[in-house]
């Protein structure tokens, strides 16, 4: 498949605008569709590698992807343009929805519906964790680490700033001994 990076900043902007505007229910599938299938900016393997890096890095994955790809193609201006293109429409939509909701929040039915949607989103997090966790099932040390971190952060509500450094140091120690 012939791939070519975007030729102009305008093209880059409209591409990321299209990703942001259509990405109901998750951004990554739409990023793939727009950049790999429709606009053919990069190959499937290239996309997978970039997303892999951005999932490893801290911060919003797709936000990082817009920075990394924008930088690769046009330097600083590319990074800024891709990021703004991605966020512009969703930002306006979310704010509009938020204001609309503030207006309707006193209505108990509306509040019940929105809270139900929130609980569903929480369930999607749990589903995602289980999906990611499948890769760890055969590694007892990893499961112990998962349970310990869940108890510390989810149940005991300890600060991530304490739990995370400890977990990473312990994790690297275990990984170097091939336990993870």
């Amino acid at each position: 498949m012939q791939v070519a990076p975007p030729r102009t900043l305008t093209e880059l902007f409209t591409g990321f605008l299209a990703i942001g505007a259509r990405s109901f229910g998750g951004v990554m599938p739409w990023a793939y569709r727009t950049m790999v299938e429709e606009r053919r900016w990069l190959t499937q393997a290239d996309f997978a590698e970039t997303v892999g890096l951005c999932q490893f890095l801290p911060g919003p994955n797709i936000g990082n992807a817009s920075i990394v790809l924008g930088k690769r193609w046009f330097g600083v201006s590319g990074a800024v343009v891709a990021f703004l293109g991605l966020m512009a429409l969703p930002f306006v939509l979310v704010m509009a929805l938020g204001m609309l909701y503030a207006e309707w929040a006193p209505n108990p039915t509306v509040r019940a519906i929105v809270t139900g949607v929130g609980a569903t989103g929480a369930g999607l997090f749990i589903g995602t964790a289980l999906k990611l966790g499948r890769a760890l099932v055969r590694k007892p040390a990893a499961l112990v680490l998962v349970a310990a971190c869940f108890l510390a952060v989810g149940v005991a509500r300890w600060s991530l700033l304490i739990v995370m450094p400890l977990a990473i140091v312990l994790g690297v120690f275990l990984a170097r001994r091939d336990w993870l």
Partner: peptide, 9 residues
């Protein structure tokens, strides 16, 4: 990897 699973959960 285990940390991300635990935190998402």
């Amino acid at each position: 990897a285990p940390l991300v699973v635990a935190l998402t959960l």
